[in-house]
């Protein structure tokens, strides 16, 4: 009989990135093979439909609308996808007892949670990139069509100076595809990352995927609305003490998702300072660390 002492004495690091990566890759493969990327086809169809908006408006306004709807839909798809795919993973592993076989290998629970989170984030990142490219292509195409039409119209009657023509083109370009829009995609990614880690936290004590999805969406909506709704409620209730306290409790317990909606400003053409983006990254990291720790608190001694 061979002695197992060598295996028993093998070093067990506190966090093995290799294990995390193995689980993340497994999650990525799982989501790909579950055909979750099919939703990108729906998005592509939507973008084409949006790109064919024919509104009796100025090219600048039409482009602005196309851009807003495309990026708004992208943001919606990103967070919804983050919730659904995350909620499907852990409860499903538990229901299928796959978790038993994973955790009976030398895998720490934190590695499992991190692996699942990274897997989802990779998929969300890929999806957002594909959606961004689709939107970019559509907006650039429409922009070039509008510019060509405007140039033809303005040059034809010769009433406009070169400067006026340049100004008009600049106005259209301002509402068209700009590199800063990449930061709007990053904003959507950060929002999706926060809701993904919150969903992981919920799924550590949830009994089913459906429960996790419903509660996560509810938390997302509340987290998105509390800043907006609090002033509304406070006004409606004439500033009652109960409502004030309730608003405070909600604000403390639920993440402020509206803060992560700064993509809306970028899409409208506002300039975003990089320092602010850096701070949003830090805040996201804070949310990820804290919610992972809380998830671990629940998951560490969870019995299966």
């Amino acid at each position: 009989m061979s002695q197992p002492s060598a295996s028993l004495n093998r070093k067990a690091p506190l966090l093995s990135l290799r294990t995390v990566w193995t689980i993340a890759r497994g999650t990525l493969t799982q989501l790909i093979r579950m055909r979750t990327f099919y939703f990108l086809l729906a998005f592509a169809g939507l973008v084409v439909a949006i790109g064919n908006f024919n509104i009796p408006e100025t090219p600048a306004k039409e482009l602005s609308m196309i851009k807003k709807v495309s990026f708004g839909t992208m943001d919606l798809f990103a967070w919804l996808f983050a919730i659904v795919s995350t909620a499907l993973l852990i409860p499903r592993d538990l229901e299928d007892r796959t978790l038993y076989t994973i955790l009976s290998k030398p895998v720490r629970r934190v590695e499992y949670l991190l692996g699942k989170l990274f897997g989802v984030l990779i998929v969300v990142g890929i999806s957002l990139t594909v959606m961004y490219l689709l939107c970019g292509f559509m907006i650039s195409f429409r922009e070039s069509v509008y510019i060509a039409e405007e140039l033809a119209a303005m040059e034809k009657d010769g009433r406009y100076s070169n400067k006026e023509i340049r100004d008009q083109i600049a106005l259209i370009s301002k509402h068209g595809m700009r590199p800063e829009l990449g930061i709007a995609v990053i904003a959507s990614f950060l929002k999706a990352a926060v809701i993904a880690v919150v969903t992981i936290f919920l799924s550590t004590f949830a009994s089913s995927s459906l429960f996790t999805i419903i509660i996560s969406i509810l938390i997302f909506l509340i987290g998105h609305a509390h800043n907006m709704a609090s002033s509304f409620w406070l006004h409606q209730s004439d500033g009652s003490m109960f409502v004030q306290q309730l608003v405070k409790v909600v604000k403390i317990l639920i993440p402020d998702f509206q803060l992560f909606s700064f993509s809306e400003g970028i899409v409208l053409g506002e300039v975003v300072p990089y320092a602010l983006v850096g701070q949003m990254f830090l805040l996201t990291a804070g949310y990820i660390i804290v919610f992972l720790l809380l998830s671990l608190l629940v998951f560490a001694d969870k019995e299966f």
Binding site: L8, R10, A12, Y100, T101, S104, K105, P106, R108
Partner: peptide, 12 residues
Amino acid sequence: IRARNVTGFLPE
């Protein structure tokens, strides 16, 4: 966790 290096498990 080191015990799991030498343990294999087949669940029901």
